[in-house]
Design a protein around this nucleic acid. Structure first.
Lengths: 277, 277
DNA sequence: GTCTGTTTTTAACAAAATGTTAAAAAGAGT
DNA sequence: ACTCTTTTTAACATTTTGTTAAAAACAGAC
């Protein structure tokens, strides 16, 4: 028989917080950036690369594997603060754009114990990066190949290269929405391959209907630079006039120019806040 | 000094799962539907209503308040299974469309203890509802008024009516993305007002670029019925020819007709699966 | 200084998508 | 057969987007 309470305060005073079985919550952060890479191997031209930040695990499980920066949520910490703290500690990055991506909670996603993982999407302008990365962190260039319902993602840098493949699970009316099932992954820790697949998909979609891209840009930029960021993320070329029209209402001329390229100088633009509703 | 392990298996065998402070995770489900309401009070015409399902809390905290159906995640349960179980138990609804909405984790969102809440969005065709709702559950019609950066949401049915107001927090470059801060809410439990605000926003946006709406429709439907569902959710009228063109590639004629209305019969359509990539 | 190469920038037109008005189509009741 | 009603589509206007190509402007070479 449950005790009867007369009011809210009396109930809370008596509340036994241990009656439910508890669990742990972690946060992984998917830090994306686009920056001038080293010379393109084929065309010998400087090219922009879409890249993700990984860190090398120092402890078991998955010791010495590359993984997303992440850590446990503290019980006295707002969930949206955890990724900021973790990112500062694991990679030395501060004050960057963060938005919640998805909460992953398969029963066996962590071999140790039941852990729920709320992943965050972070964007940064790598060229303007003041802070120095910790030595355990490294940028990997992201490439994706779609073939039918399979998506193969390749992560690479000067030293290493590895891939994983996801199957797109088609939503059937009345069942779950689109999701991705990893069918081959020999390198990353936990469910990181799935997190990365979901994150890339989300970023590509949000490029189309939000101003999220400006979190990856310096304050002043040329339209060509902005276009190259789009092209690097989407993995395809865009036509100049169409891109300019599309982006025009989100930017404003600063009046300044970028000169010295041996050709007509480019006007510098800045993000222009526009109406949301 | 940390003990050194030679391999993954040895580490896991020795792993002390209690070293991190744990917490609880709940799931709230935002069930939306559009159905023929009772007569419209002003125009005396049958109208479609956009509505959300609430249940009355039977225990403290927030005893006797209306709230979203929800419950605790079990430690041996996939996070995406929890809302299905909870919905079956609290409202007697089975087999309905569910997608993860957002994970809410402010430190004091539950007055009892630290609880993280992963909210789900659920859609259902209320007219075709076979199962009978439990008596503690009730549908509330949703209306929203936007004025500047304030959004006032009103929930009502034949017996009750209450409102809450959210402030749209403008994203500043380098800071959080758009979010909503509840500035007035005298009725709902926990952070339910915020969950509902986020959910309505998400549903309205997804209407534009997904086929999510067909989860709220019967197998066969007329284009006018489909249009009325859009109108109810968006809260505004749409022009017929424009709507038909927009939706045409997502539907296919069944060949059947809906007759008996004293006017030209409507063709019945069905959802047509189309390419995602 | 003028010419050439290069890339930015915009003009100009084509094609597609969307907004809008209004007319045709087809059942049910009079 | 005529009228009422709502569905359906035709027709046109407007806007947006795709595409090609030309003009603009700087740096370096001669």
């Amino acid at each position: 028989m449950t005790k009867q309470y007369r009011n809210e305060a009396e109930f809370l005073k008596d509340y036994d917080a241990s009656q439910y079985e508890k669990l742990s919550l972690t946060t992984d952060i998917l830090v994306f950036s686009v920056a001038k890479g080293t010379m393109d191997n084929y065309r010998k031209l400087p090219d922009k690369h879409f890249s993700v930040l990984l860190v090398k695990r120092k402890t078991y499980p998955f010791k010495d594997r590359w993984c997303l920066p992440g850590g446990f949520l503290r019980v006295d910490e707002d969930i949206n603060e955890a990724p900021k703290r973790v990112l500062a500690k694991e990679t030395n990055l501060h004050n960057i754009y963060l938005e919640q991506l998805y909460t992953f909670g398969a029963v066996n996603r962590d071999p140790r114990l039941r852990v729920i993982n709320t992943a965050y999407l972070a964007l940064i302008d790598k060229d303007r990066l003041q802070e120095k990365l910790l030595s355990e962190a490294a940028w990997f260039t992201v490439r994706q190949v779609h073939s039918g319902s399979l998506i193969t993602t390749t992560l690479s840098n000067e030293q290493e290269c590895f891939s994983f493949t996801a199957q797109v699970i088609d939503p059937t009316l009345g069942n779950e929405p689109v999701h991705f099932q990893i069918i081959s992954d020999d390198h990353l820790a936990f469910d990181n391959a799935e997190v990365i697949t979901v994150g890339i998909d989300r970023l590509r979609n949000k490029l189309k209907y939000t101003s999220i891209v400006f979190n990856m840009m310096p304050a002043d930029f040329t339209l060509k630079e902005l276009q190259q960021v789009y092209e690097a993320i989407l993995g395809k070329k865009l036509l100049d006039p169409a891109f300019r029209r599309m982006i025009s209402e989100q930017v404003v001329k600063t009046g300044k120019q970028k000169t010295g390229g041996g050709h007509r100088p480019s006007a510098l633009y800045r993000y222009k806040k526009h109406e949301l509703f």
